[in-house]
């Protein structure tokens, strides 16, 4: 039984690494994704086309491949960083493409009348964007954005492949050492579920609330 509590402690610490990595990724991808999404909507055809193709490429390549691309790509260009930075960068880049896509989608799906109403009131285009388009668009973007958080947390499990010690790698190690793979992976499932489910539930809740208003 002492074994079991030691295992729980070990995996609890690994879960903290997972949480920390996920938090960094969520913050980074939100910032980058918002910038990509908003700039892509406001700028001319060349810049927005460029941003859309960047988003397309990031979304079209698996996260695992992106992790390896950053892992070997940065040294290729003479930049040496530690694996944690590699994982955080690669996962954030992939997720930020999703954030950008969500922001773009919610801006596009706003009725045009909103824009015209603002202009008719004598607002400058920048004011229309700041006070009319963005508040409504970001509100509509909130439920899908929240549902990206569990996706990000799950994506951090891939960092184990470049040997970052987080929950997935720790559970694999413990399973190999104790030969109790069944119980150990069960605990890992439970930990991931406890971390992810509140966000999933909050996403459902928000979506229900927002759609209840709009209909």
């Amino acid at each position: 039984m002492e074994d079991f509590s030691a295992m729980l402690f070990h995996m609890g610490r690994a879960a903290q690494v997972t949480l920390a990595l996920a938090m960094v990724c969520v913050v980074l991808s939100t910032v980058v994704g918002l910038i990509l999404g908003i700039v892509g909507m406001l700028s001319g055809p060349i810049v927005s086309g460029l941003i859309r193709s960047i988003v397309y490429v990031f979304r079209g390549i698996p996260i695992l491949v992106q992790i390896f691309l950053v892992y070997f790509g940065l040294p290729f260009f003479g930049i040496l960083v530690n694996p944690y930075t590699v994982a955080a960068l690669a996962i954030s880049l992939h997720i930020s493409a999703y954030v950008a896509e969500i922001v773009r989608g919610s801006i596009v799906s706003l009725p045009k009348i909103q824009n015209e109403g603002g202009l008719a009131l004598g607002m400058m285009p920048a004011q229309v964007v700041l006070w009319i388009t963005l508040p409504q668009a970001l509100k509509a973007a909130l439920p899908p954005y929240i549902s990206l958080v569990p996706i990000t947390i799950k994506a951090t499990s891939l960092a184990s492949i470049i040997s970052i010690w987080e929950l997935t790698l720790a559970s694999k190690e413990v399973a190999n050492q104790t030969l109790q793979a069944f119980e150990v992976f069960g605990v890992a499932f439970a930990l991931y579920f406890i971390i992810c489910f509140p966000f999933t539930w909050f996403g459902y809740h928000l979506e229900k609330k927002l759609t209840a208003y709009s209909h």
Binding site: P150, S157, I161, T168, F185, F189, F193, C196, T200
Partner: peptide
């Protein structure tokens, strides 16, 4: 939905 694919594979 709330657990990573890699862990499913290992399991």
């Amino acid at each position: 939905r709330n657990t990573p694919s890699l862990l499913h594979l290992f399991f």
